[in-house]
Simulated assay, not measured.
Amino acid sequence: MNIALILGMLLVYTAAQCLLIRKACSPKKSYLAEKILCSLLFVAVAAVSARVGSRPEAFVHLAPAFGCCVVGDVLLAIYNRRRRLPWFVAGGVCFLAGHGLFVWGLCRLQPVSWPVPVAAVAGALGVLALSRLPGMRFGRLLPMAAIYASFVSAFLGKGFQLALGLGQPWCFLVLAGAALFWVSDLLILFLYFYRTSHPAVHAANLATYYYGMFLLGLSLGF
């Protein structure tokens, strides 16, 4: 894949990221338009990468997952503005579906193996352990959080399986993207369920998520 193209996409993507994080950390927290822009940009990165790469079929396999993440982004942006629980739950369900579809799409390229179920179980148990921390308040959403963690951890496990089993450059991009996605969702626990949170947590959550998606999209170009 052309280095100039990668740098160009990264420059535009970073500019949009800076705008989003600036608005997200402002007192008004009104950033729906900026979030939609960044979400459409990672879809564009994936589409362009697949077009110039050697695996255009991979975009078809992963497009439903990218779509779920776009919808989830919009719903969580609305939640941050309105603070109504149904918006948060709907956004979480969309992201859960996105994680599942990422695993499903990648399993069409390589059959599932042991890292996926092991990571899924570890993710669910990790949330149950975090729920015992002083200041962590899951309430009735704890079962959903555990299920969600199992899905995003399964995605990370699939990235590890690809890197371990195939060892191609695009596999390591998937692993890096899934790892950033996992870190982003870990930060979400402290952003939405912890007693207090610093604005830096929100900035880190957005940065790790969107750059994770950038790497996932970029992986289609190799």
Rank of each mutant, 00 (worst) to 15 (best):
M213I: 00
F181H: 09
A163G: 11
G177I: 15
M213D: 00
L128K: 02
A204N: 08
L156S: 06
C171N: 15
G157K: 08
A176Q: 10
L206Q: 02
C171Y: 13
T208R: 09
L218R: 01
S197E: 14
L215C: 11
L156K: 01
L189G: 05
G135T: 05
L191V: 09
G135R: 07
G212P: 00
I147K: 00
A178I: 11
A207Y: 13
A149M: 03
F160C: 03
L173K: 03
V121L: 14
I188W: 10
L187G: 10
P134E: 03
K158E: 04
Q161N: 10
H198M: 13
S219I: 08
I147N: 00
P134Q: 01
M144V: 11
L186Y: 14
F214K: 02
Q161V: 09
D185R: 04
L191N: 12
A124M: 02
A145V: 01
S153Q: 07
P134F: 03
S131Q: 09
A146H: 07
C171L: 09
V118E: 02
G217W: 12
A203C: 09
L156P: 06
F172R: 12
F151K: 00
L164Y: 10
G177D: 11
L156W: 14
P169R: 10
A207I: 13
M136S: 01
V121W: 02
A120Y: 09
L156N: 04
F181R: 02
F190G: 05
L180V: 10
F172Y: 14
H202E: 15
A207P: 03
N205Q: 11
L218Q: 01
A179H: 05
S153K: 05
S184R: 03
G177Y: 12
A145R: 06
P199M: 15
L164E: 12
R195K: 10
L175D: 08
P143S: 02
S150P: 06
N205T: 14
L175H: 07
Y148S: 08
R140K: 13
A163L: 13
P134L: 02
Q161W: 12
A120Q: 04
L125S: 04
Y148W: 01
G157W: 09
G159H: 05
R132L: 12
A178G: 11
V118D: 01
Y211K: 06
G135C: 09
Y148V: 04
L218F: 07
A154R: 14
R132Y: 05
I147A: 08
T196R: 13
R195W: 00
L175W: 11
V183Q: 11
L173W: 02
F155L: 15
Y209E: 01
G167M: 05
Q161Y: 08
V174N: 10
A204E: 05
A149I: 01
T196N: 13
V127E: 04
G217D: 03
A154S: 07
F190S: 03
W170L: 08
L141T: 12
L142S: 12
S150T: 09
Y211V: 11
L191M: 03
L180Y: 07
A207C: 14
F138S: 00
L189E: 09
F155H: 06
V121F: 03
L164S: 14
F138H: 00
